[in-house]
Structure formats: structure tokens, C-alpha cells
Amino acid sequence: MPSIIIDGKEITADPGEKILWAALRSGIYIPNLCATEGAELPFGGCRLCIVEVEVGGRREMLTACSETVRERMKVYVHTEKIARMRRTAFELIMSDHHIDCKNCAKGKTCELIRISSTLKWSLRPKTLRGLVRDLPVDDSHPLFAYDPKKCVKCGKCVFVCQGLGKSFLDFAYRGFEMVVTTFDHLPLSSLGCKSCLECVRVCPTGALYLKETSKNVIPAKAGIQQLLTSPDLCSGGSLKETGGLGDG
């Protein structure tokens, strides 16, 4: 078991593990939005988990979600430089995020709120102008809806849908215009989605959310877990029930 040193504190990690997961397991918080444990190719898009790693006497800025641990590796997660860079990354994410917490389906479970309250940052960017794009909400699906204005482009839904062999969602366009969307912006209901709702489960923000109507079908507290294991709620049955994927 390799041991690494985070801010002077020695912790143990699993061989081949990424810094982020080793740190989180040891109770050291590193903010992250796009990281998925066990991902073959970490996305590294949110830039929030950036850390400094000592390499040959110099410190390098790396993303903790993509850097594999090495024996006696020296990692710094709380330096002034990192705080500044993370703050900028967070402001960039928030600058095109539609901030509407009062009416947001995600409520207090939002990862953005968690990050901002843990690190004592305001949700609203201070140094950047807000540039929320005018993108339509897709509420065609009976159980869930997608609001691209709240999407932080972490790609979690894209990768989870891909992992399940469906790939209904993908990135489209480039740069600031980039969105997560369906093929040719077709409505979600037209794709043959089996409502496994994994995309809703992994979404860190309120971009993919359960509709009010689907919440009424199930007891309020049960949430997504109940939906995932209840066979009668959607025509195709959930993934766990059917044990795999049927034809679109």
C-alpha cells in the first residue's frame, strides 16, 4: 500500500488509485464536480480538484482526479495559489449557471452549494460577468427534465449513459457554445430511453431533475432510489429490474 503525504499528513492509498479518492477517504476534502471514481479516463474538466504535487523538487499543478498516487508523493491541497485557481475555475462555472436556488429541484443537495458553503465562496461570481445562455428546457420525458442553463458540463450524465451502452447524451458544439444534448437536439422522450434515471442520479446540479409529477408517484422521502428499484413506474422497467438494456 503506497502512502502519500498530503499537506504534511501521511495517508495510505490503494495502488493505482487517484489522489482525489485517497484524500477523500482519509477525510481530506478536495472540491470536485466532474470526478467519477474508477473512471478509466478521468475527464478533468471542472478544474476544481487542482492540487500541487512535488515533482523533482518543483511543484506542479495537477488535477487530483487524474493523477495516480506514487509512494511518498508530496501533495499540497491547501495553498494560496491553489485557492486562487480553484476560485477562478468556480467563478467560470458559475458565470454561465442559471442561479435559481429557490425554485431549483436540486435544493440543498446541489454540489455547487456544497462547494461554495464548504469553501466559503459566494455562488455568484464576483469578478466575472454572468453570461447565462438562452437555452430551452427539455421536459418531454414523463419522469425527468433537462435544463441546460443549469448544466456545468461535467459530463457525468454523458459518461454514465455511455457506460450503460446507450449514449443518448453527448457534448455538442465547442468552446463557450458547448452543450450536453441529444442527437440533433431531439426531445428526450423520442430516444427510446428506458428511464434508468442514472443521469439524474449523477447530475451534481439541478440540470437533470425528476419532475414534480414523478415525485408524486413515489413517497416523498424515497427519492430516486425508490424509482430505480420500482418496476412499475416506467413502461420499460428500470435497468436494475430488467437486468440489462433492451433495444432502444
Binding site: 455511455q162 446507450k166 449514449s167 443518448f168 447524451l169 453527448d170 457534448f171 455538442a172 444534448t181 441529444t182 442527437f183 440533433d184
Partner: peptide, 8 residues
Amino acid sequence: LPPSEIFS
């Protein structure tokens, strides 16, 4: 390939 990838 999934159509969404071609669109991407």
C-alpha cells in the same frame, strides 16, 4: 456508433 456521437 451512437448518433449522439456523430452529432457531437
